[in-house]
């Protein structure tokens, strides 16, 4: 089986498994001996409460950075699903008490956590934690919550919401009376605690044992910095060009202050790992202050945004916007080091000519015999004498330059850049007849 059908199959398998694990509590409620019915709406509310909790537990799996789980879709899509399905879980969890309140308004008294029984206190606090969790994620930037604080809070609130909901189920005691049902919920609990221990304790501990040292910090065009790391006392890591790693600087891996960045260096030279970072957010603004000799930790490589997964592709098209050039630069450097002469087209959008990160090196690669590279710059604010493409990457621009790459099925496209640009380019490519399976994206800015 070639790589693509195998990935599709794997992708479908994970979706089926996700559905099975989410719906398992409902099936168990249906098949096992159950207490006698207490009215349709009450039982309906109970059922969605159980399913909502199963969904909340599975959220931890989605963000546990299992490479085998993310391989078929790409990391960004798994995070995006985590975000979307959390909203669905939130609605379902919220509907659980709302239905009970509508059915019998006297139950509203349970909201008074000072007078309510413990089972209600657990339930109410769990929902409150969930409300804060969702609100702080959806509106992190307007609420001006620092990314590091948000990440730590996100983990703590999620843990609290699930633990409190488990307590609520045990204290209510309904539908957990049989050994099979108890075993299922204990199993869910153990699985979840084990996962948490793996992500928060074992993984950081493994990272601590494999530190890196900052070798150099170099300014680049476009308000960016390139950070080069080398392994300190171990063999380092190997990666595929286009992948990313979680980087911890000036902090311990246990502090949960890591940030995802694409490798920008060649995968053929893994002893010097380069990351090119634009000054955009809380953390990235301080990159220029990092000094050679400082210690760093890496969790990676991650991500499926790589040409290495498409060995049989005849050509590649890269569409980069701003600092989205970093994973693509890693791919170009790697292909050049490997002497890969497959035809490549790079469409590179930037605000202005002076801010085109890696401009000189891209020009060198274009002129060299190591690559068969064609480059199209698209400038938002071009200089007066500019005779290249201007504005944004549109369907027209793509049609003009992709004409050498006919038919559309003959190439794989990699897009990385700001969210609106990626959406527009993806739509344009689909309109030009490019297969959705041949379009690969990397999106980071989800929170």
């Amino acid at each position: 089986m070639t790589q693509k059908p195998r990935r599709y199959l794997q992708g479908i398998l994970w979706i089926v498994l996700y559905l099975a694990l989410t719906l398992a509590p409902l099936f168990l409620l249906l098949v096992g001996p159950a207490p006698s019915g207490r009215g349709f709406w009450r039982e309906f509310s109970v059922a969605i409460g159980f399913a909502g909790l199963a969904m909340m537990c599975l959220q931890f799996v989605l963000t546990a950075r299992f490479r085998w789980l993310k391989a078929p879709y790409g990391s960004d899509i798994v995070y995006f699903f985590h975000r979307q399905v959390s909203l669905v879980a939130f609605v379902i969890v919220l509907a659980h008490p709302l239905i009970l309140f509508i059915e019998d308004p006297a139950r509203l008294g349970l909201l008074n956590v000072f007078a309510a029984p413990w089972r209600a206190r657990f339930g109410v606090t769990s929902v409150l934690a969930l409300i804060v969790l969702i609100a702080s994620s959806l509106w992190r930037k307007p609420l001006k919550i620092h990314y590091d604080a948000w990440r730590i809070g996100h983990g703590l609130l999620a843990t609290a919401a699930v633990a409190l909901a488990m307590g609520h189920i045990v204290l209510v005691g309904h539908h957990v009376g049989t050994p099979a049902k108890r075993a299922l919920w204990i199993g869910y609990g153990i699985f979840w605690v084990g996962l948490l221990a793996y992500v928060r304790v074992i993984k950081p501990w493994l990272e601590m044992r494999r530190p890196y040292v900052v070798e150099s910090v170099t300014p680049e065009r476009g308000n960016a910095w390139t950070l080069v790391l080398r392994p300190d006392g171990h063999s380092g890591l190997t990666f595929h060009p286009g992948q990313f790693a979680w980087l911890t600087l000036r902090s311990s891996p246990f502090a949960d202050r890591e940030h995802p960045f694409s490798f920008s260096s060649s995968a053929a030279q893994p002893q010097r790992l380069g990351f090119t970072i634009r000054e955009l957010g809380d953390f990235t603004r301080k990159i220029g202050q990092v000094r050679p000799g400082e210690r760093a930790y890496l969790d990676g490589p991650h991500g499926g945004f790589t040409t290495d997964r498409h060995e049989h592709a005849a050509r590649f098209v890269f569409i980069a916007g701003g600092v989205g050039i970093t994973p693509i630069m890693s791919i170009l450097r790697t292909l050049a080091d490997r002497g890969d002469r497959r035809p490549l087209l790079l469409v590179y959008a930037s605000r202005d000519w002076e801010g085109v990160t890696f401009r000189e090196e891209i020009e060198q690669l274009r002129a060299s015999s190591r690559l068969d590279l064609c480059v199209v710059y698209v400038l938002e604010r071009p200089p007066a004498d500019w005779d290249g493409e201007r504005g944004f990457v549109t369907a027209d621009i793509l049609r003009r330059h992709l004409s050498n790459f006919e038919p559309p099925s003959a190439f794989e496209v990699f897009i990385c850049g700001p969210q609106p640009m990626m959406d527009a380019v993806e739509r344009a490519l689909l309109g030009l007849g490019v297969d959705v399976g041949d379009i690969h994206t990397e999106r980071f800015d989800l929170v």
Binding site: L30, F40, F80, F81, V85, R443
Partner: peptide
């Protein structure tokens, strides 16, 4: 496109849960 598919999957999971929950509630009371 992939984002739309994953949104559709998330909504699909929600609908499935609601349908199965209704089935459960119905069977419990009959």
């Amino acid at each position: 496109m992939r984002q739309r598919l994953s949104t559709a999957l998330a909504i699909g999971v929600g609908i499935l849960i609601l349908v199965l929950s209704a089935l459960f509630a119905f069977l419990q009371n009959h």
